[in-house]
Computed example of a mutant assay.
Amino acid sequence: LLSKLLFPLLALPDYYSYSTAFGDGSGTEYSTAYDGRITGIRVWEHSNSLIRGIQLRYDGTWTTPVCTSNGNPLEMSLRDNESIIQVSGKYYSGYIYEIMFVTSRGRSLKVGQPSGNSFNIYPTHDGSELRFLSGRQNGYGITSIGAHWAVYYTGDNSATA
């Protein structure tokens, strides 16, 4: 039972990768790490400007929003056996201004403004998917973002893609 509760990568470190955070990284650290598989994404943008907040849904449970949840979010629900395989965007002047999540089925959620330096992050290992995000935020917006990738294993230790 304990092994099912622990992040499954403890036994399989070759299938884990981390994409270095992009952005200036000021403010407080955050992490969206949670048990289960990502099944939804919400992103809040400040009036045609920077990214104010991000929230992930794991199975049926939404994480606490990163930074803020003020305003109306743009949202995408993932389909059965669909996963996030790429995170792209732009950062400028201390903030993440644009973010795009791409799924294993070619769908995407793009939020924000195309201003600044580009980033494009994806897993190192075939079959890996986004497991959680980490970085920094300052209460006004997201100042850096990094991605943690791994092959998702079900309770019977079989991988799903």
Rank of each mutant, 00 (worst) to 15 (best):
Y30Q: 05
S88D: 15
I85T: 15
A33D: 12
R57I: 00
A161F: 12
A147G: 08
T61Q: 12
I145V: 12
E45A: 13
W149A: 01
G36P: 00
A150C: 03
T20C: 06
G71R: 11
P73I: 03
S93G: 03
V102P: 01
S134R: 12
S104F: 06
L56I: 00
V111T: 15
V102G: 03
M76T: 01
T68M: 13
F119H: 04
S69I: 00
N138P: 01
G89Y: 13
N117W: 11
I38D: 09
S69G: 03
R42Y: 06
R37Q: 06
G60K: 15
S104C: 04
D156H: 06
A21I: 01
N70T: 08
Y152V: 09
R105C: 04
D59A: 08
S118N: 08
P8K: 10
R107C: 01
L2V: 07
I99C: 09
S3G: 10
R131H: 03
S104N: 05
S83I: 02
I142Q: 15
I41F: 04
S19A: 12
P73W: 08
G27C: 04
G71Q: 11
S104H: 13
L78M: 07
S104V: 00
S47M: 04
R52T: 02
E75W: 07
L50N: 10
T103A: 02
H125Q: 12
D59T: 01
V43M: 14
K90W: 04
Y140E: 15
N117P: 00
I51Q: 10
A21R: 14
Y97I: 00
G23C: 06
G135P: 02
M76L: 05
Y140R: 15
P123R: 07
S47F: 09
L133Y: 05
Y16D: 01
T64A: 05
T143Y: 15
G127L: 13
I85E: 14
R57L: 07
N138C: 05
G116H: 08
T28K: 14
G27E: 15
N72W: 10
P123G: 07
Y95N: 08
F132C: 12
A150V: 00
G127F: 08
D80W: 03
T39V: 01
V43Y: 14
P73H: 07
A161G: 06
N48R: 14
Y95T: 00
V66C: 09
S134M: 08
L1T: 15
D35T: 04
T39C: 12
F7A: 13
S108A: 07
N72E: 11
T103G: 04
F132T: 00
A150D: 15
P65W: 12
D126V: 05
Y58F: 04
T28Y: 12
L12S: 11
T103I: 07
S88F: 07
Y97C: 05
L6C: 11
Y92E: 04
Y92Q: 08
S118I: 03
T64L: 10
I96G: 09
A11V: 10
Y34S: 10
D24N: 11
N81Q: 09
D59C: 02
T64W: 13
V87F: 14
R42M: 13
Y30C: 02
H148N: 15
A11Q: 15
